[in-house]
């Protein structure tokens, strides 16, 4: 069974980011990059499946510039068997990511695509769903539990409670935060990763993004609030501002 895990290189989610002076993007000088945390959860889940079932092969893929090798090496250190870098400096929107992955999936024929529900940089929450649609595969989004047997059983947290879905293979699963807690990278894993294959290939997508980034700016600084002395004063202040009737 082959599990494909797309991993995106994102700015360290804990880093304080600031927009470039001209508003064209984020200033990345001196900023660390990481695997998108949701993708890391997907990778962790795939590696756990592999640890339970040795016939599972885990392939990590990333789309982007050559620096993405850093995240793919990390994926190999965590436990992926091999990695593929679709090397491009083009800007991708979600439909393009889905299309690029579709080409790869048609070639690799994985049983499962496990990926983060969204990336912490753009927060689009689209690529997985679009990919499933393009492939016409069953999908389960926001997985909080995954059980791969003769079919995939996926538990997802919804507003009304837990929902469990059963999906035939091949299928696509996107992961939520509570699915697992990713492991620490073990140093021997990093050494082992050196001898694992990492293939680079050119992109297949020729389309261009349908959306255009107009401007990136910091949220305006919050004005200072006021302190009220009692509940009555609070209620009065809220009424005053039309928040309460």
């Amino acid at each position: 069974m082959l599990i494909l895990v797309p991993v995106k290189r994102v700015i360290d989610p804990y880093a304080k980011v600031r927009p470039l002076a001209d508003g064209s993007g984020i200033d990345t000088t001196g900023v660390k990059f990481e695997i998108n945390p949701f993708d890391e959860i997907a990778l962790e889940e795939a590696v756990r499946q592999k640890e339970k079932n040795p016939s599972v092969e885990v392939v990590a893929v990333s789309i982007g510039a050559s620096e993405c090798e850093e995240q793919l090496r990390k994926a190999l250190a965590i436990g992926a068997d091999r990695a593929i870098l679709i090397e491009t400096t083009n800007t991708y929107d979600s439909p393009m990511v889905a299309e690029e992955l579709r080409h790869l999936i048609e070639e690799l024929q994985p049983s499962v695509v496990l990926m983060g529900k969204q990336a912490t940089d753009d927060d689009n929450n689209q690529a997985g769903q679009m990919l499933a649609a393009k492939l016409d595969w069953p999908q389960a989004t926001f997985a909080s539990k995954v059980d791969l047997g003769s079919s995939a059983k996926v538990t997802r947290e919804t507003d009304s409670g837990e929902e469990t879905l059963e999906l035939p293979f091949p299928c696509l699963i996107t992961t939520d935060l509570r699915l697992n807690e990713p492991r620490y990278i073990a140093l021997p894993g990093i050494i082992k990763a050196r001898s694992k294959p990492l293939d680079r290939r050119p992109p297949k997508v020729t389309s261009t993004p349908k959306t255009r980034r107009v401007r990136v700016e910091s949220p305006p600084p919050r004005a200072a609030g006021i302190k009220v002395g009692s509940v009555d004063e609070l209620v009065a202040a809220l009424k005053d501002r039309g928040v309460l009737a």
Binding site: E69, R73, A77, Y184, I185, A186, L187
Partner: peptide
């Protein structure tokens, strides 16, 4: 090297 840096950041994370 990048591998060594990965080990160093694994230690920092721990």
């Amino acid at each position: 090297s990048s591998d060594e840096k990965m080990m160093i950041s694994a230690a920092e994370q721990f």
